[in-house]
Lab assay of single mutants.
Amino acid sequence: KKRTSIEVSVKGALESHFLKCPKPSAQEITNLADSLQLEKEVVRVWFCNRRQKEKR
């Protein structure tokens, strides 16, 4: 499966949402994916990866 490159503006939106809520619910992920026009899975994985980055 190909990697999804996320635009800078979208990254900013994801980042600001992450600061408010690092573990969004499935519903929040769906809403966020719809508003940013990304697949739910891409948003879910982004949050997962971002939480791991926070641990490092």
Rank of each mutant, 00 (worst) to 15 (best):
S5Y: 15
F18M: 00
S25G: 07
L19V: 10
C21N: 06
E39T: 10
K40N: 09
I6L: 12
T30V: 09
F18T: 01
F18K: 01
A26D: 13
F47D: 05
P24F: 02
K40L: 09
A33R: 00
S9Q: 14
V43A: 03
A33C: 03
E39F: 00
V42W: 09
T4C: 07
R3G: 14
L32K: 00
K20L: 07
P22A: 09
E28L: 04
S25T: 10
P22M: 01
R3N: 11
A13V: 15
K40E: 14
L32Q: 01
Q27T: 08
R50V: 01
K2S: 10
S35M: 08
C21H: 12
L14G: 00
V10Y: 08
K1T: 11
A33T: 00
K40Q: 15
K53R: 11
F47V: 02
I29L: 12
D34Y: 05
L19M: 14
L32Y: 01
V42G: 05
S5R: 13
V42S: 09
Q52H: 09
R50N: 01
K55S: 12
Q37S: 11
H17A: 11
V10T: 12
C48H: 13
E39H: 06
S9A: 14
V8H: 11
L19F: 05
A33I: 01
E39N: 13
L14N: 00
V45P: 01
V10C: 09
K40Y: 09
Q52E: 14
K2Q: 06
K11V: 10
G12P: 11
I6A: 12
E28G: 06
K55Y: 11
L36N: 01
S35C: 10
A13W: 05
F18S: 01
S35Q: 12
G12A: 15
C21W: 04
E15V: 02
V45I: 15
V42Y: 12
R51F: 04
S35H: 11
H17V: 10
K1I: 07
V43E: 02
I6N: 06
I29V: 07
V42N: 03
P22V: 03
R44S: 03
P24C: 02
A13T: 11
N49P: 01
S35T: 10
V43D: 00
R56P: 06
I29W: 01
L32T: 02
L19Y: 05
N31Q: 13
W46R: 06
L14F: 01
S9Y: 12
R51C: 05
R51H: 05
C48T: 13
V8W: 08
T30N: 09
E54T: 05
P22I: 03
Q37T: 06
S35V: 13
H17M: 08
K40P: 07
S25L: 03
C48E: 14
A26W: 08
H17G: 03
L32I: 15
S25N: 10
G12M: 15
S9W: 07
R51T: 11
I6Q: 10
I6V: 10
L36E: 00
V43Y: 02
K11E: 15
R51S: 07
V43W: 00
L36C: 03
N49T: 09
R50A: 04
R50G: 01
S9C: 06
L36G: 00
E54F: 03
E15T: 01
S25R: 04
K20G: 05
E15R: 00
R56N: 08
K53G: 07
S16L: 09
I6M: 09
K20S: 06
Q37L: 07
H17C: 07
R50F: 01
T4L: 10
V8F: 14
V45Q: 14
K53F: 08
S16Q: 13
C48Q: 15
R56Q: 15
C21E: 14
V42E: 14
L36K: 01
K2G: 12
L32V: 06
K23P: 02
A33P: 01
E15Q: 02
C21D: 10
L36I: 04
V43H: 03
L32M: 10
L36P: 00
K40D: 12
S16Y: 13
G12W: 06
Q27D: 11
V8A: 12
S9H: 15
N31T: 13
E41I: 00
K20T: 06
E41L: 03
F47P: 15
E28M: 08
K20N: 09
L32E: 02
K11G: 08
E7C: 13
L38M: 08
S25H: 03
Q27G: 10
A26Y: 10
W46L: 03
K40A: 14
S16E: 13
K40M: 05
